[in-house]
Design a protein around this nucleic acid. Structure first.
Length: 266
DNA sequence: ATGCCGTATAAGATACGA
């Protein structure tokens, strides 16, 4: 089963490039972030016509996540548990950043799609929100691990895990994506017992999933690796491969992110 | 580079991103 995570930076702007990619690559599951659309505005028929089941968790203008799957999606939940002031104005669940569903192939896999807050400027209230969000993700990961079943958490983590995951790490030193407190929080989630799929398959520097639109970042390979798959042990046992489809960044009307893939024996 | 580009909202600037 081939599963991709892809921050598309707006479904309206990306509909052409995204459908071309879907038709070409035929992912079994595509986990999307930054759809920047309400659920009713997402062009689900386009993907349904191509054989996909579609589940979205959107909002007006910003954020928004979705899962497309050739196999049925079961037990869909929207939102990350544990929000402070849930349901009230300005609460931690105001932003549409998280969706879960189970995909049943040869094995059942719990798929968690996430768009972790950027957190800049750091320090500050946006950074505090990022850290709270990561604590909630930690708690949800703990529950998934306790179930001892195949599950993965995939998406735009807005975290550069290590120095080798940025072309110019010194430029990111105090940024919310790379500062020590952010990397610590990511490591705490991993240390519960999750496998970061890409680093099982590829060592070394120069592998990125995001390049800024500005200053010719793509042409200089001035990128960062911030889109990740974390796998429970039962899911890691199924891992055949993990790779980044960086070529997509050089196409017409690209997102600033590219797809990251896992192939699972499931 | 407290904004070099891009997206969304909405009708001209402004918010946001990483």
């Amino acid at each position: 089963m081939k599963i991709a995570t892809f921050n598309i930076n707006g479904i309206k702007a990306r509909i052409g490039a995204l459908t071309d990619w879907i038709v070409e690559q035929q992912p079994d599951v595509a986990i999307l972030q930054e759809i920047k659309s309400v659920d009713e505005g997402f062009p689900r028929e386009i993907f349904e016509d191509k054989g996909y089941n579609v589940e979205t968790h959107g909002q007006k203008g910003f954020n928004g996540v979705a899962i497309l799957s050739k196999l049925p999606l079961e037990d869909v939940t929207r939102g990350l548990p544990g929000a402070e002031g849930a349901g009230r104005e300005g609460a931690d669940d105001d932003e549409a950043r998280y969706i879960e569903a189970t995909v049943v192939g040869k094995k059942a896999i719990r798929i968690c799609g996430l768009y972790l807050p950027n957190g800049n400027p750091a320090p500050g209230p946006k950074y505090d929100y990022k850290l709270r969000w990561m604590q909630r993700l930690h708690d949800r990961a703990q529950e998934l691990l306790a179930a001892e079943e195949p599950a993965l958490m995939a998406g735009d983590y807005n975290i550069i895990p290590q120095t080798e995951d940025a072309a110019r790490p010194e430029a990111w030193r105090d940024d919310a994506l790379f500062r020590l407190e952010s990397r610590d929080a990511f490591r705490r989630i991993q240390n519960l017992g999750l496998t970061e799929a890409f680093r099982v398959c590829e060592a070394g520097s120069g592998h990125y999933s995001f390049w800024d639109y500005q200053a010719g970042a793509w042409n200089k390979n001035d990128g960062i690796r911030i889109d990740h798959f974390l796998l429970t042990p039962q899911c890691a046992d199924l891992l055949n491969n993990c790779w980044i489809e960086s070529e997509v960044r050089g196409r017409d009307k690209p997102s600033d992110h590219v797809p990251v893939w896992v192939d699972l024996a499931a």
